[in-house]
Design a protein around this nucleic acid. Structure first.
Lengths: 212, 212
DNA sequence: GTCTATAACGCGATAGAC
DNA sequence: GTCTATCGCGTTATAGAC
């Protein structure tokens, strides 16, 4: 966890304090936030630029001051989610560490990215390859999964993980559990903190639900 | 696992062998199968009755011979998925069994329902409450989850499951892993059989990935 | 320098008339 | 069944307000 990468939310948080110049209205980060929320609620395709403009109380044209296209909004949000996950992996793979520790870092980093960038990751996980941008995002996810699966395979060879489950299957089950957080985890509506969740997920993945 | 409940696919399999009478064409089960496939590929809302008719090579009017509405098709598919899951739970709760064994039955039964009715369950898990029917389905899912969570809580009290994780969280993580199967498990495209998967999932949920 | 509005374009899908 | 008018889509040009 060396360099927490920039996110949409972080950019908004940084920009908000310093007084803005020019005509008052939305800045890029604010528009992004609302757009991603709408994409998640209604689906990307089903969300028209008109409805986004209406939600913001803007004209359609005004949106094109902030973005060059509807797809660019999608692209930025997906980049944010994928970039966060990839940074977690890079971080875990760099430096001297036992394989098992690298895997712990990946799992915990992934949960932190999920919880801190819920809207962007939600969008990413719902993408189904309907356009070139979506297919590129799916491909990046595939590569990410493969790299984690390699880590799992190595941990199995080193005797750290059980070997009676294929690395690809173990990786998918693991991320199935992690990714499902987007379906129910709402930091605002629960007393479960992100760090408690990080601990719960790590324990269940490594040691399971059985009492010991 | 006493009475494997009827499913769309099962109905089709049974109907296929025995020679059909009357005018040749699609029967209800075949239409259902194609419709659910389209709903999953394009989304329910985005799939027009016209496009479904086109896919089948039928007129819209012919479709309404099989079904009274587009929503009815959705309803039947969701009922099929929910009915399967609920039957698994009823089965696990009936009879004399330790709580832990009940939980194993629920998990394994759920994986079997997922793998044997992938299209219907996929549809169920993608529903987002956009209509009365979808909201009713979500409510049935919620009740199912709650009943399983009660089972988890009881298993914790009996010392069978670890108690350092809330029952609701444990249940969600568990079903997060199970439900994620719809994202990648394709019986036709892999050498992993459903029963191997049942075993893998059960082991990971109870004992985790760590070597022992 | 930053944000927004009016007006209109080309295009594909869809619905209604025939 | 085919044709066509219409609509809504993402997008653009231009200009004005803070």
């Amino acid at each position: 966890m060396s360099t927490p990468p920039a996110s949409i939310a972080a950019a908004a948080d940084e920009a908000a304090p310093r007084s803005r110049r020019g005509r008052p209205g939305y800045d890029r980060a604010q528009v992004l936030e609302i757009a991603v929320r709408l994409f998640n609620e209604q689906g990307y395709d089903a969300t028209s630029v008109s409805s986004l403009a209406a939600e913001l109380g803007l004209s359609k044209a005004a949106l094109y001051h902030h973005f060059s296209s509807k797809e660019q909004i999608l692209q930025i949000a997906l980049d944010d989610a994928l970039g966060g996950l990839e940074a977690v992996l890079e971080d875990a793979l760099s430096g001297e560490q036992p394989t098992a520790a690298r895997l712990v870092s990946v799992i915990q980093g992934a949960v932190r990215v999920l919880t801190s960038r819920l809207p962007q990751v939600t969008l990413l996980l719902r993408v189904h390859g309907n356009s070139e941008i979506e297919r590129a995002a799916l491909e990046r996810r595939r590569i990410f999964d493969q790299r984690v699966a390699k880590l799992v395979a190595q941990a199995q060879r080193e005797g750290e993980l059980r070997s009676d489950i294929r690395p690809s299957v173990a990786t998918r089950l693991m991320f199935g559990m992690i990714n499902s957080l987007i379906e129910w985890y709402r930091p605002a509506h629960t007393s479960l903190t992100p760090e408690e969740l990080v601990g719960d997920v790590t324990r269940v993945i490594f040691d399971g639900l059985r009492a010991r």
